[in-house]
């Protein structure tokens, strides 16, 4: 039994005299902002690099969008073919190899990072952007190697490097091999430091575990996006350990800023200009 006598037209539009735009399917065109709970048009959100036009809440963006945000235009990708060898022959609910293959299919990436070089406000920079959609942005041997190579390239060419972190930490499926990537990358950063080539670390939501506890905290500048979750241990682990409720805003970018762990919290819309300004300070005019 239906409450209304008139059937809904099959194409989902109303029978109102409609403009062209109203005739398309509306499903998925509108989103609810997780910050202000307001309804926003998806295209408005995307045009604003996933920052809510109403309240400024930052939702995550993928690595490709990040590079589009930061580079002036075209960029060159490096080490695109590096893939994991599954060093532990690991299998959980499904074999790690299958998990890799399905993530590679879904993201068209070989692993959880894009390493690229291009111009940022006219200055040549290397940028590594991590991809959360690839096994939680976790760091295994491939992520470790691509970042290390990018740092070495920066050192050899004396080109500044920006690493944008978005990661749950080291990749469990590669065991101690992924743990050692922390030492490998940090050692490369020691050399970059000695070479006095600038490194800006951008921490985005979320950056935790072995990524925070290595390169993400080793920038000449460590900056974060508003509201980003940043920490060593994840909030659930801490809650289970200390058996208390965590304070509001714990491990958010603003919390870290207050505790002296970040140089600045920079909104996404200002990120590119901020980096350009910092690099002008470090390296002089382009």
């Amino acid at each position: 039994m239906s409450w209304f006598k008139r059937e809904r037209p099959a194409n989902g539009t109303t029978s109102q005299p409609a403009e062209g735009a109203r005739r398309v399917r509306t499903e998925g065109l509108w989103l609810k902002c997780e910050g202000c709970r307001q309804i926003i048009w998806r295209k408005d959100l995307e045009d604003n690099f996933n920052v809510c036009p109403q309240c400024g809440a930052h939702s995550r963006i993928d690595a490709r969008t990040r590079l589009r945000l930061l580079f002036d235009g075209e960029y060159e990708q490096h080490d695109t073919l590096l893939t994991s060898t599954d060093p532990l022959n690991f299998s959980d609910s499904k074999p790690y190899r299958e998990r890799l293959a399905s993530n590679q299919g879904a993201t068209s990436l070989s692993d959880a990072i894009i390493s690229a070089s291009g111009k940022l406000h006219g200055r040549l920079v290397n940028i590594c952007a991590m991809e959360m959609k690839f096994i939680g942005g976790s760091m295994g041997a491939v992520v470790g190697e691509k970042i290390t190579k990018a740092i070495e390239r920066s050192h050899a060419e004396r080109t500044p490097i920006v690493i944008v972190s978005a990661s749950g930490g080291a990749r469990m499926q590669e065991g101690a091999v992924s743990l050692m990537q922390m030492a490998k990358i940090s050692s490369a950063l020691m050399r970059l430091d000695e070479g006095k080539v600038p490194y800006i670390s951008v921490l985005t939501d979320p950056t935790t575990g072995g990524v925070t506890a290595s390169f993400a905290m080793l920038g000449d500048l460590n900056i974060a996006e508003p509201g980003a979750l940043i920490g060593f241990a994840g909030p659930r682990v801490i809650e289970q350990t200390i058996r208390q409720k965590l304070p509001d805003g714990f491990q958010r970018a603003e919390f870290l800023l207050r505790h002296g762990m970040l140089d600045a919290v920079v909104p996404r819309g200002e990120l590119k200009d901020y980096i350009a300004r910092a690099l002008r300070f470090f390296c002089g005019p382009v």
């Binding site: 940090s186 020691m190 506890a213 390169f215 905290m217 200390i242 965590l246």
Partner: peptide, 20 residues
């Protein structure tokens, strides 16, 4: 993994040790 350790920069302390 605790509140005080996070406040004082557990991740930063570990990271710095690796580099140094």
């Amino acid at each position: 993994p605790g509140i005080d350790a996070e406040e004082r920069g557990q991740a930063e302390a570990i990271a710095r040790n690796l580099r140094e």
